[in-house]
Design a protein around this nucleic acid. Structure first.
Length: 358
RNA sequence: GCAGGGGUGGCAGAGCGGUCAAAUGCACCAGACUGUAAAUCUGGCGUCCUUGUGACUACACAGGUCCAAAUCCUGUCCCCUGCA
C-alpha cells in the first residue's frame, strides 16, 4: 500500500459539533463502495459494527493489522456501534441461537458455530481493539411494541450496562484523556415517555460525550417517532452530540435535526441504491426518491440528478443505470451507491440552511 | 423413406380426461426497505367487466369421441433423435 493513513484527518473534539451523516460500513466497507470512492462523496465518517466484526474478522486480528483506520485505509471518523441492536434483532426474534441475561448476551454465530459472549466490558474492549473513534456502550434494545415491563427491564439493564461500560473505559483505558476516543450511551424506553426521560437523565448523571436515540425510530406505519425523539433530545445536554441511530430517510433526518439531533447514520442510503431507489433534487416531492428500475427511465439520457457532482451523475445517464441494474451489473450498483452517498452528504449540508429559511 | 419422440402463456418447462386460465423458474410491471444475516423481500402478470366460488377466449391447425379434452382418437403442418 502506497498511502497508509497515519492519523485522523479531523479533530476528534469537533465530532458532532455540526451535523454529520455517517454511512454504515458494518464489516469495514460501505457496501459496493471503495474507501477512495467514499472520500469522493465527501463523507467524513463511517459506522462500523462491533458484533459483525466480532464474528466475521475478529477484533484481535483487526488490532494486529493496525486497527480499522489502517485496515480500511480510512482517515475519517469511525464510530463503532455496540452490537446492542443486533443482540435485539437476532436473539430476541430468535433468528440466532442465544440468550440475553443481566450481564450481556451469549450467542452462537451462524457462520462457524462459535459461541461468543458480549458484555458491557467486552463490547468496549472490542471497540478499543478496532480503534474506533467514537464508542457506543452496549444497550438492551427492544422492539417498537415492547411491553411496559419489558421496557422497564430494558432501561434498567441499559443503565447498568452504561455505567459498567463507562467505568471500564475509564479504569482500564484511561478514558478520553489517554485514548482520545469519545464514548456515547443509548437511550431506551420504547414508547413510554417517562422511561425515556428516566433513561436519558440517568445516563446524563453517568456522563457521556454523546447520547443516542435507541430502539426503533419509526412506528408500524413507517412514521418517525417524533414525540420520543423530542423527549430524549430535551433531556440530554445541548453541548453533547445527539445521535439519531438509524435515521433515515432524507425527510426524517430533517425532522430529527429540527428536534436537536446532529449525528445520523442509515443503511437506507446504500441499500436503496442497491434496490433501485436513488435520490435526486430533480424530484420535487419531499422524499426526493427516484426509482431507477421504473420503465420510464429506460431511455432517459439525463443524469440521476442534474445538480449532482458525483461520478455517476457526471458520466452516466438514468437509462444507463436503469439497464445496468436490471442486468445486475456490480459496477453500476457501486456508482449508484456513490451517488446516494453524495446526495446524503449534500443533504446534511443543506438542512441547516433549510432550517434557517423555515 | 423407415422407426421413435415432440409441438403448452414473452422464454424455458410441468401437467397427460374433471379440483387448469394451466405448477415452477426467468423476463416483464409495480411496491417495500430507517443503530445491514438484505445485489433482498412483497404483490401483479390471457381479455373484459358490475372485481366475482364472474363472463369470454385459450395449451400447433382442422375434425372427432365423451356429460366433460391441454390431456383420448383421426388427419394436416412443423421440429428433434436413430437407421437407411
Amino acid at each position: 500500500m502506497s498511502k497508509i493513513i497515519e492519523k485522523l484527518k479531523y479533530n476528534i473534539e469537533d465530532f458532532g459539533k455540526t451535523q454529520i451523516f455517517l454511512p454504515d460500513a458494518t464489516r469495514g466497507a460501505v457496501r459496493f463502495v471503495t474507501t477512495e470512492q467514499l472520500k469522493s462523496t465527501q463523507t467524513k465518517g463511517v459506522v462500523i459494527n462491533t458484533l459483525h466484526l466480532l464474528i466475521n474478522i475478529g477484533p484481535e486480528k483487526i488490532m494486529e493489522l493496525g486497527g480499522m483506520h489502517r485496515f480500511m485505509n480510512w482517515d475519517g471518523y469511525i464510530l463503532s456501534d455496540s452490537g446492542g441492536f443486533q443482540v435485539f434483532s437476532l436473539l430476541h426474534s430468535k433468528k440466532w441461537q442465544g440468550k440475553v441475561d443481566k450481564d450481556g448476551a451469549t450467542f452462537r454465530a451462524p457462520i462457524d458455530g462459535t459461541v461468543h459472549r458480549l458484555t458491557p466490558e467486552s463490547s468496549i474492549d472490542i471497540q478499543i481493539a478496532l480503534d474506533s473513534d467514537v464508542l457506543v456502550v452496549l444497550d438492551d434494545c427492544r422492539s417498537a411494541d415492547v411491553t411496559r415491563s419489558d421496557a422497564e427491564l430494558s432501561v434498567d439493564r441499559t443503565l447498568q450496562w452504561a455505567y459498567r461500560a463507562k467505568n471500564h473505559f475509564e479504569k482500564k483505558y484511561g478514558g478520553f484523556a489517554k485514548t482520545k476516543k469519545l464514548i456515547s450511551a443509548v437511550v431506551q424506553g420504547g414508547s413510554y415517555d417517562d422511561l425515556r426521560i428516566k433513561c436519558a437523565q440517568e445516563l446524563v448523571k453517568i456522563g457521556f460525550d454523546g447520547y443516542n436515540f435507541g430502539g426503533f425510530v419509526v412506528d408500524e406505519k413507517g412514521e418517525l417517532v417524533k414525540d420520543q425523539l423530542n423527549v430524549v433530545a430535551e433531556n440530554t445536554p445541548a453541548d453533547r452530540f445527539k445521535y439519531a441511530m438509524g435515521i433515515g430517510k432524507p425527510e426524517d433526518i430533517l425532522e430529527a435535526y429540527r428536534l436537536g439531533y446532529n449525528v445520523f447514520d442509515t443503511v437506507l442510503v446504500t441499500r436503496n441504491a442497491r434496490h433501485g431507489t436513488l435520490y435526486s433534487f430533480d424530484k420535487e416531492d419531499e422524499n426526493y426518491a427516484l426509482r431507477i428500475k421504473n420503465s420510464r427511465y429506460n431511455k432517459d439520457l439525463s443524469p440521476i440528478d442534474s445538480t449532482c457532482d458525483c461520478d455517476a451523475c457526471k458520466n452516466y445517464s438514468r437509462a444507463y443505470f436503469h439497464n445496468m441494474l436490471k442486468s445486475n451489473e456490480a459496477s453500476a450498483v457501486s456508482l449508484m451507491s456513490v451517488h446516494n452517498l453524495r446526495f446524503y452528504q449534500r443533504w446534511i449540508e443543506k438542512i441547516s440552511e433549510m432550517e434557517m429559511k423555515a
